[in-house]
Amino acid sequence: MTLKLDDIRYTDGLVQAVAQDINTGEVLMCAYMNKTALDKTIVSGYAHYWSRSRKSLWKKGESSGHLQKVHEILVDCDMDAILLKVEQVGGACHTGFRSCFYRTIDGEVVGEKVFEPEDVY
Protein backbone atom coordinates (compact mmCIF):
# COMPACT_ATOMS: atom_id res chain seq x y z
CA MET A 1 0.00 0.00 0.00
CA THR A 2 1.44 3.34 -1.04
CA LEU A 3 0.63 6.22 1.30
CA LYS A 4 -0.23 9.66 0.04
CA LEU A 5 0.21 12.97 1.86
CA ASP A 6 -3.57 13.14 2.18
CA ASP A 7 -3.58 9.81 4.06
CA ILE A 8 -1.82 11.44 7.02
CA ARG A 9 -4.17 12.52 9.82
CA TYR A 10 -3.36 16.20 10.26
CA THR A 11 -4.83 18.17 13.18
CA ASP A 12 -5.47 21.78 12.23
CA GLY A 13 -3.29 21.11 9.18
CA LEU A 14 -0.32 19.83 11.20
CA VAL A 15 1.20 16.50 12.16
CA GLN A 16 3.73 15.90 14.97
CA ALA A 17 7.18 14.99 13.67
CA VAL A 18 9.98 13.43 15.72
CA ALA A 19 13.58 13.55 14.47
CA GLN A 20 15.76 10.63 15.56
CA ASP A 21 19.46 10.11 14.90
CA ILE A 22 19.79 7.30 12.34
CA ASN A 23 23.01 5.99 13.91
CA THR A 24 22.45 6.26 17.66
CA GLY A 25 18.65 6.22 17.99
CA GLU A 26 18.81 9.42 20.08
CA VAL A 27 15.66 11.54 19.87
CA LEU A 28 16.85 14.94 18.66
CA MET A 29 13.73 17.08 18.50
CA CYS A 30 9.98 17.29 17.99
CA ALA A 31 8.34 19.73 15.62
CA TYR A 32 5.32 20.01 13.37
CA MET A 33 4.88 19.50 9.66
CA ASN A 34 2.13 20.56 7.34
CA LYS A 35 1.54 18.86 4.01
CA THR A 36 3.96 21.22 2.22
CA ALA A 37 6.74 20.61 4.77
CA LEU A 38 6.32 16.85 4.46
CA ASP A 39 6.32 17.05 0.66
CA LYS A 40 9.47 19.24 0.63
CA THR A 41 11.14 16.80 3.03
CA ILE A 42 10.32 13.85 0.78
CA VAL A 43 11.43 15.62 -2.42
CA SER A 44 14.62 17.27 -1.07
CA GLY A 45 15.81 14.63 1.39
CA TYR A 46 16.24 17.32 4.08
CA ALA A 47 13.88 18.02 6.96
CA HIS A 48 11.40 20.87 6.59
CA TYR A 49 8.97 21.88 9.32
CA TRP A 50 6.14 24.31 9.99
CA SER A 51 6.82 26.98 12.60
CA ARG A 52 3.66 27.58 14.60
CA SER A 53 5.07 30.75 16.17
CA ARG A 54 6.26 32.31 12.90
CA LYS A 55 3.48 30.69 10.85
CA SER A 56 5.95 29.78 8.15
CA LEU A 57 7.73 26.88 6.54
CA TRP A 58 11.39 26.38 7.49
CA LYS A 59 14.19 24.08 6.44
CA LYS A 60 16.02 22.74 9.49
CA GLY A 61 19.51 24.22 9.53
CA GLU A 62 18.91 26.76 6.79
CA SER A 63 20.40 29.61 8.82
CA SER A 64 22.67 27.65 11.20
CA GLY A 65 24.01 25.07 8.75
CA HIS A 66 22.86 22.31 11.13
CA LEU A 67 20.91 20.35 8.54
CA GLN A 68 18.99 17.12 8.96
CA LYS A 69 19.54 14.70 6.07
CA VAL A 70 16.55 12.37 6.06
CA HIS A 71 17.28 8.67 5.55
CA GLU A 72 13.87 7.22 6.36
CA ILE A 73 10.36 8.46 7.11
CA LEU A 74 8.01 6.31 9.18
CA VAL A 75 4.34 6.91 9.97
CA ASP A 76 2.78 5.63 13.19
CA CYS A 77 -0.13 3.19 13.33
CA ASP A 78 -2.76 5.94 13.69
CA MET A 79 -1.16 7.92 10.86
CA ASP A 80 -1.04 11.02 13.07
CA ALA A 81 2.70 11.20 13.80
CA ILE A 82 5.85 11.09 11.68
CA LEU A 83 9.27 9.73 12.61
CA LEU A 84 12.22 11.06 10.65
CA LYS A 85 15.42 9.05 10.88
CA VAL A 86 18.06 11.66 10.17
CA GLU A 87 21.75 12.33 9.94
CA GLN A 88 22.17 15.45 12.06
CA VAL A 89 24.85 17.96 11.10
CA GLY A 90 25.83 19.95 14.21
CA GLY A 91 23.23 20.44 16.91
CA ALA A 92 19.50 19.93 16.57
CA CYS A 93 18.56 22.36 19.34
CA HIS A 94 18.56 26.12 18.78
CA THR A 95 20.06 26.51 22.28
CA GLY A 96 23.27 24.82 21.13
CA PHE A 97 22.74 21.27 22.34
CA ARG A 98 22.91 18.18 20.15
CA SER A 99 19.35 17.26 21.19
CA CYS A 100 16.45 19.35 22.42
CA PHE A 101 16.14 16.78 25.22
CA TYR A 102 19.27 17.87 27.08
CA ARG A 103 17.98 18.21 30.66
CA THR A 104 16.16 16.11 33.23
CA ILE A 105 12.78 16.99 34.74
CA ASP A 106 14.77 18.40 37.70
CA GLY A 107 16.66 20.77 35.39
CA GLU A 108 19.98 18.93 35.43
CA VAL A 109 21.80 19.38 32.13
CA VAL A 110 22.75 15.93 30.84
CA GLY A 111 23.15 16.66 27.12
CA GLU A 112 26.11 17.70 25.03
CA LYS A 113 26.44 21.35 24.00
CA VAL A 114 27.89 21.41 20.49
CA PHE A 115 27.70 25.09 19.49
CA GLU A 116 27.08 28.58 20.80
CA PRO A 117 23.83 30.02 19.41
CA GLU A 118 25.26 33.54 19.09
CA ASP A 119 27.91 32.15 16.73
CA VAL A 120 25.39 30.79 14.21
CA TYR A 121 22.23 32.91 14.48
Rank of each mutant, 00 (worst) to 15 (best):
Y121P: 01
L83T: 02
F115W: 08
S44G: 15
E108S: 03
D6K: 14
L57M: 08
K40T: 05
T2E: 12
D39V: 07
L67T: 03
D119K: 10
M1P: 05
D39I: 04
V89C: 14
Q16K: 07
S56A: 09
H71K: 06
C100Q: 03
A31K: 00
V27H: 04
E108L: 08
S99A: 02
I82W: 11
G45E: 04
E108W: 07
K40A: 02
A47N: 01
Q68P: 12
V86W: 06
E112D: 12
G96V: 08
N34Q: 01
L57I: 10
G13P: 12
H71M: 06
I105H: 01
K40W: 01
Y49N: 13
R98D: 05
T104N: 03
H71C: 02
H71E: 07
D12K: 05
S44K: 15
Y32W: 13
V18C: 14
R54Q: 14
T24V: 00
I8L: 12
H66N: 13
R103A: 12
K40N: 07
G61R: 11
R54M: 12
E118S: 07
C93I: 06
L3A: 08
C93M: 10
K59H: 06
K4L: 14
R52A: 12
D76Q: 09
K55H: 13
V110T: 15
I8V: 03
G96R: 05
F115G: 04
V18D: 03
L84R: 05
K60F: 06
V110K: 02
R52C: 05
Y121V: 06
F101G: 02
G91K: 00
S51P: 11
D80S: 11
D119T: 15
Y49V: 10
P117D: 05
M1V: 15
D39R: 08
H48R: 09
K60E: 08
V27P: 10
A19P: 07
D106M: 01
V18L: 05
E62Y: 07
Q20M: 14
H71T: 03
I8N: 01
P117F: 09
H71F: 04
L38I: 08
K69H: 14
R98M: 08
W58H: 05
T24E: 01
M33V: 09
G91F: 00
E112Y: 09
D78A: 15
